[in-house]
Nucleic acid binder design. Structure first.
Lengths: 187, 187
DNA sequence: AGCTTATGGCTAACAACGTTAGCCAACCCT
DNA sequence: AGGGTTGGCTAACGTTGTTAGCCATAAGCT
């Protein structure tokens, strides 16, 4: 039996890619094993199980999202930064619905959990956006949660086909950005 | 073997309650059967299977949410109506996280699908809120999607324990309401 | 090189869950 | 009372996740 040359990172990356293709709910250990060219039980040499796999995919997704948003924001401030961050976040979720779905419902076990640090990086990217607005220090957490809710809600609803009726979704998202800009500005 | 006196509605109600208790992901046919005092295969006399059960729970949740929001809004207008609707929606999701989770990812099969009509009722409740603001007819859909994203995002993030850091969550939600009010007003 | 050790494949097997088939008692109606 | 429908049941099967245990390969040491 020749070695397949796998390692945890490779398995997780393949799992994330597969989740994006078939949906997180349809990501099965057997399917992943087939994809990486190995029998199912061999996966357990690299990841602890389905729950562990899910966590690792979530960390990967958080890191990638933080990179995407952080990069998109650079060089912009105020409304431009807000729009860039929101668009980058939505684009990421729509391009990688499976791995983003893996982030929902997983909780960091402690402050040094990789999941916590990855989440913090994403949060920092949005915090940078807020600096372009006149937000009191005591309100920053509230504003962050609000922005996160807005982006998360829109992206997941669209990814789940939750918008049934007719108006153009891209137009709605631009309207959402303008709405958020007004909400952050008019204090 | 004495009859248990079940019917589809009873099974669905029990399933929704159980989902709220143990989480939708842990709602298993065996667990539900035990709860209603019956062996697992007997459930299939009342619901078509797990997917059908999930759909029916989603319809129930949508209907209940529409009732809650619609009732909360009555007698209010403008910012008061917005606050009442948002609080009622969040309270519902926090009280019934399992059945609300069942609504995510299910799509109506057609315009006369009960799921579609229940969703429309919930939408109507939020549309009533918008009448207190000066929104152009062409923007109503965008505003609805934005409000829905905001409420859905916040409620699901909180239900999933997605807010890690310290500031008070109720305060954040009140801040969110004020934010949305500004966003809808300052046109 | 050769020996040792750890690693990463494999097969076999099991547990949990969803589901179907097929049986039979309880209820309903006349 | 009797016939049909309904709603329980047991038995069985397929799929999926997981563990145990085996063995070849790769890597490291002398």
């Amino acid at each position: 039996m020749p070695r397949a040359g796998l390692d945890p990172a490779g398995v997780v990356a393949a799992g994330a890619a597969l989740a994006d293709e078939v949906g997180l709910a349809n990501l099965t250990m057997g399917l992943l094993a087939e994809r990486v060219g190995v029998r199912t039980p061999s996966l357990y040499k690299h990841v602890g199980g389905q729950e562990d796999l899910n966590r690792r995919i979530a960390v990967l997704a958080m890191d990638e999202a933080a990179d995407a948003v952080g990069h998109a924001v650079q060089g912009y401030a105020g409304r431009d930064a807000l729009a860039a961050a929101a668009r980058a976040f939505r684009a990421f979720v729509l391009k990688h619905p499976g791995r983003y779905a893996a982030t929902i419902g997983v909780e960091p076990s402690g402050p040094d959990d990789p999941l916590a640090t990855a989440g913090q990086r994403l949060l920092d990217a949005f915090t940078a956006v807020l600096r372009g607005y006149d937000i009191a220090e005591s309100d920053v957490d509230h504003a962050l949660r609000t922005l996160r809710s807005l982006c998360h809600g829109f992206a997941t609803l669209q990814a789940a086909n939750g918008f049934q009726w007719s108006a153009d979704i891209d137009d709605s998202f631009e309207w959402l950005i303008a709405f958020a800009d007004r909400g952050l500005r008019a204090l």
